[in-house]
Computed example of a mutant assay.
Amino acid sequence: MPDSSLPVRKIIHIDMDAFFASVEQRDNPELRGRPVAVGGGHRGVVAAASYEARKFGVRSALPSVTAKRRCPDLVFVKPRFDAYKQVSQQIRAIFAEFTELIEPLSLDEAYLDVTVDRHRLGSARAIGEEIRRRIRSETQLTASAGVSYCKFVAKLASDQNKPDGLCVITPAQASAFIASLPVARFHGIGPKTAERLNQLGIHTGADLQGLSREELEGRFGSSGEWYWRICRGIDDRPVRAHRTAKSISAERTFDEDLSDPHALLTELERVAGLAWARIERSSATGRTVTLKVKYADFQLCTRSRSFAEPIADARSFTAAGRELLTALLPTAKGIRLLGLGIHNLIEVDNQAPRQLALAI
């Protein structure tokens, strides 16, 4: 349970519903009601999928070939990041009317600290509902919101009633709420860690709560402390209004170790596509491309290349990654993981946006 001796924050996590795909459906009536994927292309990956497409198992980061196989009627559209950024700026302007404490995570989601009730709406729930109403009215898009006392629980809550929903979790409700969820839903626990936890018989928050701090640290090292805290709803991280990312990347662990150069370069293109989608969402760019390689024996290797000017597009980003990987090929031992990202970030879209106590 959270520390009752500390003042209770009021945190809202806002997450736009299928943001990229929803913008496309809004702007093109012919796409409404149809399964839509943003991205794709030869050897490409899905950057976003509409809810109609998600019913067929189409998700972001899925190879476009697989997505089309799962949903033959899937409509691919090219991403229009300028349009998404413009809508994101509209949404952030709405946020700024309610609080200065805004921590954007990407173009389509952010944490808001609304502990101070700027408009005297009476509760964080009321603020969340008003923000959602304003977003719908001004952008014709829907957003889901999670309202709670900390960032971890608020983020879990925002996913609870998607799409177009709101979920409030009070401090008294947090432990039972977390206990009911699969660990794969927990922010900070990725697919591989979730799989490892499942293999240990840990499937839900309740299972995780049953382990001591010592047991978790013994099995997961420094991450064990974090797992012990979050499964108990303990998260004292503040909403950081001027959060600056150091890097943006994506990586993929293969089911089988790869050594064939063609296969590795093909996988690199997929990783690059996913990473570039994240870079575009973040409204940032950078001058340094970094390749991460983990071999079958778990040896980790990184290679970087810096440029005089910021990386301008996905093609340049992917080409830099191919060059870095090609320098390591051929390899005598298999590769189990590839990652690609941008470092030395430059913020393209600076957020502005500050804020007694109200009920959740």
Rank of each mutant, 00 (worst) to 15 (best):
D3K: 06
L6A: 10
R9E: 10
R9F: 12
I11S: 02
A18D: 06
Q25T: 00
Q25D: 08
V36I: 06
G41F: 00
R43N: 01
V46G: 00
A48T: 08
A49D: 10
S50Y: 15
R54Q: 04
V58Y: 05
A61N: 04
R70T: 03
C71S: 12
C71N: 09
K78N: 00
F81V: 14
A83M: 11
F98K: 03
E103M: 06
E103C: 02
L105M: 11
L107C: 13
A110V: 12
D117M: 06
R120W: 13
I127C: 05
R134Q: 11
R136V: 01
R136N: 07
S137T: 06
L141I: 01
S144H: 06
V147R: 01
V153S: 03
K155T: 03
L156N: 07
D159N: 14
P163D: 10
D164Q: 09
D164L: 03
C167L: 09
I169E: 14
I178N: 03
I178M: 02
P182C: 05
V183Y: 13
R185W: 13
G188C: 07
K192E: 07
A194D: 13
E195G: 10
T204G: 07
R213Q: 15
E214K: 09
L216M: 05
G218S: 14
I230R: 02
R240V: 04
R243V: 15
A245E: 10
E256M: 08
S259A: 13
P261I: 11
P261D: 09
H262C: 02
L264H: 09
L268R: 01
R270G: 00
G273L: 00
K294F: 07
D297Y: 09
A308V: 13
E309M: 11
A314C: 13
S316I: 09
L325Q: 12
L329S: 07
R336G: 02
L337G: 08
L340I: 13
I346G: 02
P353F: 15
L358M: 04
A359H: 15
